[in-house]
């Protein structure tokens, strides 16, 4: 009996290993299942539809791939992709330029009440719907809006400046909407930095500026990168802001997809959707590669 008792644990698998696995599966399962249920059928649907024929009013289930031919041969779509990437890049850069100093300042606030106030301020754009936000901007940026009135009153411009229904308007709207997504990853990485590191730099003779240049900035770079990636991806996929603030003049893939679906041009919409997915994924993966290299470089000599 005692012999059995001694050998038994070594032979049989402790039951808690299975139990633990099951618990983990139970925890992660619903979220994954939900995503897959949405993702896989819709991707399949896209693939199937993209290959079908469209005869002016409806989709005919004949495999022709003609939508692909249209998309890849028409220079119109190349221009649209270019505009869209330009829009995303400009938006991301402006968000970083505005967001980094804001994140830096917020990360330095000591009083909990002020931190809370800063967070509410930063995240306030997300508390309103994107449609309401866009119409708000329309009023503010219109020819007779407050911004043009201000510019004219001060005397900076003679006649009203065009601020909506163009590239500028969309960028303004996107920056407003995406700034919280830029600021947040940067704040979290700045808050994780050990304050002793800055003191160590100062102790070693670095002024505030050089401490930032050689310590704070390189150490916060992963946060900047995450922020840039998030902002870029979200602006690539933005629909409401370009649709409403672009006024039909700033065409991007999500807007085209929406229009084509309304026109029942499903094959082209499907191709465009797949192109958008491919575009976003390529930028994410290639930027990851670049990031790794940049990290290796930034970790070099100060």
């Amino acid at each position: 009996m005692s012999l059995q008792a001694a050998t038994a644990p070594a032979v049989s698998r402790p039951p808690w290993i299975w139990g633990r696995g099951l618990v983990l599966l139970g925890l992660v399962g619903p979220a994954v299942a939900f995503s897959l249920v949405i993702l896989i059928p819709s991707l399949a649907l896209l693939l199937v539809n993209s290959a079908y024929h469209f005869d002016r009013i409806r989709v005919v289930p004949i495999v022709t791939f003609e939508a692909y031919r249209t998309f890849f041969t028409d220079i119109f779509f190349a221009r649209i992709i270019l505009t869209q990437v330009r829009l995303a890049v400009v938006t991301t850069l402006i968000c970083l330029l505005l967001g980094y100093p804001a994140a830096y300042a917020i990360a330095k606030i000591r009083r909990p009440a002020w931190v809370m106030a800063a967070y509410i301020l930063v995240f306030s754009p997300l508390l309103t719907s994107s449609v309401v936000r866009a119409y708000g901007w329309l009023i503010i940026l219109a020819r007779g809006g407050i911004v043009n009135w201000g510019l004219q009153t001060v005397g900076l411009v003679e006649s009203p400046v065009r601020l909506v229904f163009n590239f500028t308007g969309v960028v303004i709207g996107l920056v407003h909407f995406l700034l919280p997504f830029t600021i947040f990853p940067i704040i979290s990485v700045l808050l994780r930095l050990d304050p002793a590191l800055k003191e160590a730099a100062a102790d070693l003779g670095a002024t505030r500026l050089r401490t930032f240049r050689h310590v704070t900035w390189p150490l916060s770079f992963p946060g900047v990168y995450a922020a840039a990636q998030l902002t870029f991806v979200l602006s690539m996929n933005a629909f409401v802001t370009p649709q409403l603030l672009g006024g039909g003049r700033v065409l991007v893939l999500p807007v085209l997809i929406y229009n084509n679906i309304s026109d029942l041009q499903w094959p082209l919409a499907a191709v465009q959707a797949l192109a958008l997915i491919a575009l976003v994924w390529t930028t994410v993966f290639s930027s990851n590669l670049i990031f790794r290299r940049a990290l290796a470089v930034s970790s070099g000599a100060p």
Binding site: D194, A196, L197, E199, A200, A201, A202, D203, L204, G205, A206, T207, R210, H214, V215, P218, L219, S298, S299, G300, A301, P302
Partner: peptide, 30 residues
């Protein structure tokens, strides 16, 4: 940064983004 003192911190505060050489060279380069 203008004192002729150097401090070894309780948790060392080494720069994790720099290698050993660049950590030690930091003060000299400044």
């Amino acid at each position: 940064y203008r004192r002729d003192t150097n401090l070894i911190f309780q948790h060392l505060a080494l720069f994790s983004h720099l290698d050993v050489f660049d950590n030690i060279a930091f003060g000299l380069r400044m």
